[in-house]
């Protein structure tokens, strides 16, 4: 394309519209996932964005008579002009083939894994039995915090417990990416994320550690969770100390009972 032709298309409403759509697509599909804290945009959301952009563009071009007429020029030309016969034929074939493909994709069923609908922080019981002893979870605080003078000792103990037991799954960085993590689904919890222990009271964490995957209610998909029932391995004191370590190492502070009130059993709100 020659330079003047390029300049002409850059000011033409039709090619401007095409340009905007292409840029919007690139931004949504490739640029947005690069932003810190964002993930790949799902296809359905991409479609929504693109429809919104298209509607916006159409409103803009049809807003002014002359602009609308110029916008339609290339479309009408392709549809009618004899010299664009080849372009017209190619367009017809391509659009038809695309429609066929999409329709085939809709009807050709392939078996997919069933959706894994899972409540991440299910409601905890009010009370549990730990090695035969009953423990009331509601209102329970980490008893080790009552001895600030020994905190360093408890933390060292908790670190040892973590490295001997939790490390292969939750990882050294506590981000759920230990060297065995890839073998499990759901993936081990990421404690660095603001959606796990940062949202929970220590008594909730105690329940999850003590009872593990098998102790989850149905909505927590207990059949999939590889989280062991640590009651079988660790003492109550060891569990409280490793909980101290989790908060200390990640820098989160546990949710407190004053803040949660009593309604939600110590789990964060809006997280199920």
């Amino acid at each position: 394309m020659t330079a003047p032709a390029l300049r002409r298309s850059a000011t033409h409403p039709f090619w401007q519209a095409v340009g905007i759509l292409v840029i919007a697509y690139i931004v949504v599909v490739w640029v947005v996932p690069l932003l810190p804290g964002s993930a790949i945009v799902p296809k359905s959301v991409v479609l929504q964005y693109m429809v919104t952009v298209l509607v916006g563009v159409l409103i803009y071009v049809s807003d002014n008579e002359e602009r609308w007429a110029r916008f339609k020029e290339p479309i009408e030309a392709v549809l009618a002009e004899p010299r664009l016969r080849v372009v017209r034929a190619v367009l017809l074939v391509v659009v038809t083939a695309l429609v066929g493909l999409v329709a085939y994709g809709q009807v050709a069923t392939t078996v997919a894994a069933p959706p894994n609908l899972r409540s991440i922080h299910p409601a905890p019981p009010a009370e549990i039995t730990f090695r035969g002893r009953s423990i009331t979870l509601t209102g329970l605080e980490n008893p080790l915090r009552a001895h600030p003078e020994s905190l360093a000792l408890y933390l060292a103990e908790g670190k040892g417990v973590y490295y001997r037991n939790c490390l292969p799954c939750h990882g050294d960085h506590l981000d759920g990416q230990g060297h065995f993590a890839s073998g499990f689904n759901p993936l081990p919890a990421n404690f660095q994320d603001n959606g796990t222990i940062a949202q929970l009271t220590e008594s909730f964490v105690f329940w999850r550690v003590a009872k593990g995957g098998p102790g989850l209610p149905r909505e927590g998909t207990p059949w999939n969770s590889a989280m062991p029932k640590w009651e079988d391995f660790l003492t109550e004191r060891e569990i409280w100390s490793v909980i101290l370590f989790l908060y200390d190492q990640t820098g989160w502070t546990p949710r407190t009972w004053e803040k949660t009130g009593t309604g939600d059993g110590g789990r964060g709100t809006g997280h199920d």
Partner: peptide, 28 residues
Amino acid sequence: GVFISPVLAMLVTLGLGLVVVRRARRRG
């Protein structure tokens, strides 16, 4: 049977496309 609906969809698209082109050319 799976191929029936995609083929139908393609025929309809092609037909519509031809109609649009015909009308555009007549207007032209």
